[in-house]
């Protein structure tokens, strides 16, 4: 920035921004802190911030009582599986749209986007019924497929915007040198596309991890991921704030860390390239 900014003004900006930032972050921080309290301390009046007897007991209880690891495993399988499956299907499609565009490419892209806008509740019963018929209800494979399909348009779009930035001349040069289509994709395109593919994977993993319509409605005991695990805490039984906090911390911590790495790609991925 070319403007000279006085240190005074910078200090005010800093103070204000940190205050607001901490305020926005506070619910997460509070959940984290509460997860280390005893249940009695969690509802202490006045509220305790840092000076309480830190304990890991809640984490052990949550794992023991509701088998956190099983839900975690389901979340990893479903979010990871749907993302990788989506990538395998989307890379060739995005590649062909970016490098061999036809007159219809734009329409195809927009149509793909439009499927994303179909409200899930509008097709809830058909999917529910198909899942029963096909024996997919409450299975990880069923949920993996559904999450892959709802995120496929975003994956194709993100990859498309990344691929479009790769200069086509390089591919042509490879072709001139006699590279086959397979070699062209494997040795020329892929190395250049890795950063784009990586951020696409990251963002879609996060979206799939947090998806809470299909995961709540299509699972029961077997395939339930962390979204459903947390929802089971919605009917309180006695003192449970500390345990709820421990469960919540465990459900969001992995994704929060991944999310912070992906913040730069977030805008591109979520606005379909309309804001850069």
């Amino acid at each position: 920035m070319a403007r000279a900014v006085t240190n005074n003004r910078k200090a005010i900006n800093t103070g204000l921004a940190w205050l607001i930032g901490l305020l926005i972050f506070f619910p997460i921080l509070w959940t984290f802190l509460t997860s280390f309290k005893t249940e009695a301390q969690a509802i202490n009046d006045p509220p305790l911030f840092l000076f309480f007897d830190w304990t890991l007991e809640n984490y052990a209880v949550v794992q023991e009582r509701s088998d956190y690891l099983r839900f975690l495993w389901n979340s990893i399988i479903i979010a990871g599986g749907s993302t990788l499956l989506g990538i395998v299907i989307a890379v060739p499609a995005a590649w062909s749209m970016a490098f061999v565009p036809s007159r219809r490419t734009k329409d195809v892209l927009l149509w793909m986007l439009s499927t994303k806008m179909l409200p899930a509740v509008g097709v809830l019963y058909p999917i529910y019924l198909l899942f029963i018929q096909l024996g997919l209800l409450d299975t990880r494979i069923g949920l993996t497929i559904v999450l892959m399909l709802i995120n496929l348009p975003i994956i194709v779009w993100m990859l498309y915007t990344y691929f479009r930035e790769i200069p086509a001349e390089i591919l042509e040069a490879a072709r001139m040198d006699g590279a086959s289509l397979r070699e062209e994709i494997l040795y020329v395109l892929t190395p250049m596309a890795v950063p784009g593919i990586a951020s696409t994977i990251l963002l879609n993993f996060i979206l799939a991890w947090n998806e809470a319509f299909w995961t709540l409605n299509l699972t029961a005991a077997n395939a339930a991921p962390l979204t459903a695990f947390i929802a089971s805490y919605s009917s309180p039984e006695g003192l449970f704030y500390a345990k709820l906090s421990a469960a919540s911390t465990m459900a969001i911590a992995p994704i929060l860390i991944l999310g912070w790495f992906s913040q730069k790609q977030l805008v591109r991925g979520l606005t379909f390239g309309a804001v850069k």
Partner: peptide
């Protein structure tokens, strides 16, 4: 500031 976006809906609602 960005953090809440990554919190799953069931967690933020319950918290």
């Amino acid at each position: 500031v960005i953090a809440p976006f990554f919190v799953m809906p069931t967690v933020s609602a319950l918290v």
